[in-house]
Amino acid sequence: MSSLDEWIAGGEHATLTGHRVFYRQDGPVDGRPVTLVHGFPTSSHDWEPIVPALVEAGCRVTTLDLLGFGASDKPQGHDYRIAEQATIVESLWTHLGITGTALVAHDYGVSVAQELLARDSARVSRMAWLNGGLYSDLYRPLLIQRVILSPIGSILVRGMTETSYRASLRKTLGRPISDEDFHEMWRSTSSNDGIRVQHPLMRYIGERKANAQRWQHAHESYPGPTLFVWGPVDPISGRHVLPRLRERLPQAKIVVLDDDPATGHYPHVENPTAVAAALAPFLGA
């Protein structure tokens, strides 16, 4: 993975919904549009290991840091909502003149993608999902996530360090990642006083419950090509989700990254070669 500084240097900022949002585009201007939406608590930099393969497949890849993440604004005291994040994505599409795009989502980005499909699925040409809470009743947050979400989470989270952050993320992985990659993930989260917004960002877990029926219907009724690239040993949204996916979306293609050692919650960071091998032909078709 290239450094976070290099990743940010290759992008730009736009003012969307009144906030400064980081984004970048890679690949040929006339390539097939693809939008990648990252997860919590990191940033678009997670996608860096697979972007070259998508570019080689002929894709025009758009990535962004959602509000409160990475190099985008992290306003204090803000009422972070998935609906606003979806509006930011739509605003970026308008800013860049993107009328239709394939969409790839991971973790927190899964809820953003479900909201986008619920609003206008015709705008999404094909849909790829990586580990995330597609079904709120199957979502298993870690203890640290429950602590952050608790009434005292806003106070406790201020004591988070790079060491405790790394320990929490490591519990979600099936394959090891380098100390350098952990450090860059920490930097993306903690920059611009980002630790202080972790508590309000975590409210998305409640939003998943409140919007469960609408969001589930959105992805289950989506008529376009659908791909799941899944890390089975993810303790949050892993193997236990697969039977539901196979039952509800029998037409979808499912790639389970179970080669030893099996992949966990961050497939594109842990096992980028396999993820790229699954996504490139699907998105480049």
Rank of each mutant, 00 (worst) to 15 (best):
Ser125Cys: 01
Tyr80Val: 03
Ser121Met: 00
Gly27Asp: 03
Leu66Gln: 05
His217Ile: 06
Asp181Ile: 15
His240Phe: 07
Leu92Ala: 07
Val157Met: 03
Val29Asp: 15
Pro223His: 00
Gly77His: 09
Ser191Lys: 07
Ile144Met: 10
Leu67Pro: 06
Leu4Gly: 01
Leu66His: 01
Asn192His: 15
Glu184Lys: 02
Ile50Thr: 05
Ala276Arg: 03
Leu130Ile: 13
Ala86Val: 10
Ser168Leu: 02
Ser190Phe: 11
Phe69Gln: 01
Gln251Thr: 12
Ala276Phe: 10
Ile8Ala: 09
Asp234Asn: 11
Thr163Trp: 08
Pro261Trp: 11
Arg187Leu: 13
Ala128Val: 00
Gly231Arg: 05
Ala57Asn: 09
Tyr139Met: 11
His265Gly: 08
Val21Ile: 15
Thr15Gly: 11
Asp46Phe: 00
Ile8Ser: 01
Leu283Ala: 06
Leu201Gln: 05
Pro75Cys: 04
Ala212Ser: 10
Pro41Tyr: 01
Tyr139Arg: 09
Thr63Phe: 13
Val197Ala: 07
Leu64Trp: 02
Pro151Asp: 08
His265Leu: 12
Thr99Glu: 12
Gln114Asn: 03
Ile205Cys: 00
Val29Arg: 14
Leu279Arg: 01
Gly194His: 06
Leu283Phe: 09
Ile152Val: 15
Val29Ala: 14
Ser111His: 05
Ser221Ile: 02
Leu54Cys: 03
Arg146Cys: 12
Thr226Met: 11
Val51Met: 01
Gly70Asn: 07
Ser221Tyr: 00
Gly58Cys: 06
Gln198Arg: 14
Arg239Phe: 02
Leu96Ile: 12
Leu249Val: 05
Gly39Trp: 07
Ser150Gln: 08
Ser150Glu: 08
Val197Glu: 13
His199Thr: 09
Gly109Phe: 02
Leu92Thr: 12
Leu142Ser: 08
Arg196Pro: 14
Val55Ile: 10
Asp46His: 00
Gly206Met: 09
Pro232Met: 02
Pro75Glu: 03
Pro33Leu: 08
Pro235Met: 11
Val229Gly: 03
Ala122Gly: 12
Trp186Cys: 04
Gly77Glu: 04
Ala262Cys: 04
Pro243Met: 05
Ile82Thr: 12
Pro75Asn: 04
Gln25Arg: 13
Pro272Ile: 03
Leu142Arg: 06
Trp93Gln: 12
Arg246Met: 10
Val112Cys: 00
Val89Glu: 01
Ala212Thr: 13
Asp30Ile: 05
Gly174Pro: 10
Leu54Tyr: 08
Val110Asp: 14
Met1Asn: 08
Val51Phe: 08
Arg119Lys: 02
Ile82Asn: 01
Asp5Arg: 15
Leu156Met: 14
Asp46Val: 10
Ala277Arg: 12
Met127Val: 07
Asn131Arg: 09
Val112Pro: 02
Tyr165Val: 14
Pro243Lys: 09
Leu4Asp: 01
Glu247Trp: 02
Val269Ile: 14
